[in-house]
């Protein structure tokens, strides 16, 4: 009887037909291509706009960062002259200029492809058909009536024992026939924004750190 059971489908086989490579790969590839194009654009923009190119005598290109002038102003407390104790301390505004590389004020990392998310759910279920179950039940009832006949005239205990055996068998088959398998796949692929290349970040950090310190006037030296 168990030979009649249809085989459960192979989950792996069901998914083989799906073009997984295309489903996940195509959008990612498109995003990667766009990002790579943007990286080239970033570099070109960086060199063309934020650097001044000089070609040396030996024909080599030399890039100097374009510097812009910034003004920093802040209030400075002017201390009281010890010889004039009646004087009130005053706050005077001091202006200083400092150079800043142009590239530090442009949000270069916004020149990148936004986040890419690919998500889909797949589910494949496999179970036995109803017709198979019906056939099985008929077979079982025939078997149980057969058991009753066999048991007739023999010890009652033996008959009931036989029936209970059949019933147990039937219920165990039920369980067996209801067996199904299912597979659920949730595919989530996420590609985030590419940060600035480490080299660029390092250069910007170096520039930022080397902003020339401002000179504050010292009482008695001003003038």
């Amino acid at each position: 009887m168990s030979d009649a059971q249809p085989p459960l489908v192979s989950m792996a086989e069901q998914f083989t037909g799906l073009p997984m490579g295309d489903l996940i790969g195509a959008p990612l590839l498109a995003a990667a291509k766009a990002n790579s194009a943007m990286a080239a654009t970033q570099t070109k923009f960086l060199l063309d706009t934020c650097f001044a190119k000089e070609t040396t005598d030996d024909g080599k290109d030399h890039y100097q960062p374009v510097l812009i002038k910034m003004t920093l102003s802040r209030g400075v407390l002017v201390p009281v002259d010890p010889s004039q104790p009646d004087q009130e301390p005053t706050i005077s505004e001091v202006k200083t200029t400092f150079d800043l590389p142009l590239l530090t004020i442009l949000p270069l990392n916004s020149l990148a492809v936004d986040d890419v998310s690919i998500g889909f759910d797949m589910e494949v279920k496999s179970s036995f058909s109803e017709t198979t179950n019906e056939k099985t039940e008929e077979a079982l009832s025939a078997q149980s009536s057969f058991s009753a006949k066999v048991g007739y005239g023999v010890f009652s205990a033996e008959v009931s024992g036989s029936v209970s055996y059949d019933s147990a068998s039937s219920s165990s088959r039920d369980t067996h026939y209801e067996k199904s398998n299912s597979a659920q796949y949730s595919v989530k692929v996420h590609a985030g924004q590419i940060p600035l290349p480490q080299g660029v970040t390092t250069i910007i950090q170096a520039f930022t750190n080397s902003i020339s310190p401002i000179e504050m006037p010292v009482y008695g030296e001003a003038g």
Binding site: T41, F45, T49, C50, I68, M70, S73, L106, L111
Partner: peptide, 30 residues
Amino acid sequence: GCSAKISLAGESSNVVTKAVNSFEKVAAQA
């Protein structure tokens, strides 16, 4: 942190304006 104010010095205004314009073009292409 210290209430200092920073601004762009007038002499660099042109350079930065040009850079911002070309940056916006590149960003629009993106």
